[in-house]
């Protein structure tokens, strides 16, 4: 057991040492992430029609969520929905292109906090639940969205 703990200590220290190192810059698509490989997740979202239903539920949800609704006071919600359908279709591996603006460009001036980001993620979970998207598939999309926190949350 002692060897195991020494090994674990070593591993933890290496993690600690390298973790803080700067990330190599990489070119991100405007959609904020590369798509999930294969189309299993896209299918789990019930394809284009399912993603459309999710966003039909999601947009009214975020614009009535007391935590974040004020953020969307001047937003063109039809465009937002269209862009979100494209983005999620693209990210889940569907046959779509995202034609919207870059995630950082769109959100950086909004002064968003982690609270906003997580509230929106919770709302999305509710909308995906409603569409009966399986939990593992939901998490695979969330794994693509979570790192966008760094581009979207600026405060």
């Amino acid at each position: 057991m002692h060897r195991l703990t020494t090994l674990a200590l070593g591993a933890t220290l290496i993690l600690a040492a390298t973790g803080a190192a700067a990330q190599a810059p990489m070119v991100m698509p405007a959609a904020g992430a590369t798509p999930i490989a294969g189309d299993a997740v896209y299918k789990a979202f019930h394809e284009q029609a399912g993603i459309q239903r999710i966003m039909d539920d999601f947009v009214p949800r975020i614009t009535s969520d007391p935590r974040i609704k004020d953020r969307f006071a001047t937003t063109n919600l039809d465009r937002l929905k269209l862009m979100l359908v494209q983005q999620v279709c693209y990210l889940t591996g569907g046959p779509c292109q995202y034609t919207g603006r870059d995630m950082k460009e769109v959100h950086s001036s909004l002064g968003l906090q982690n609270l906003d980001f997580n509230a929106l993620a919770e709302d999305l979970q509710f909308s995906m639940d409603k569409e009966k998207v399986s939990f593992p598939a939901q998490n695979q999309l969330l794994a693509k969205l979570a790192p966008m926190q760094r581009a979207i949350v600026t405060k």
Partner: peptide, 17 residues
């Protein structure tokens, strides 16, 4: 907490430490 985020850093290999 020293660095890393257990939830957001899905695209990074290192954990929250």
């Amino acid at each position: 907490k020293l660095f890393g985020d257990a939830v957001y850093d899905q695209d990074r290999w290192y954990p929250q430490v």
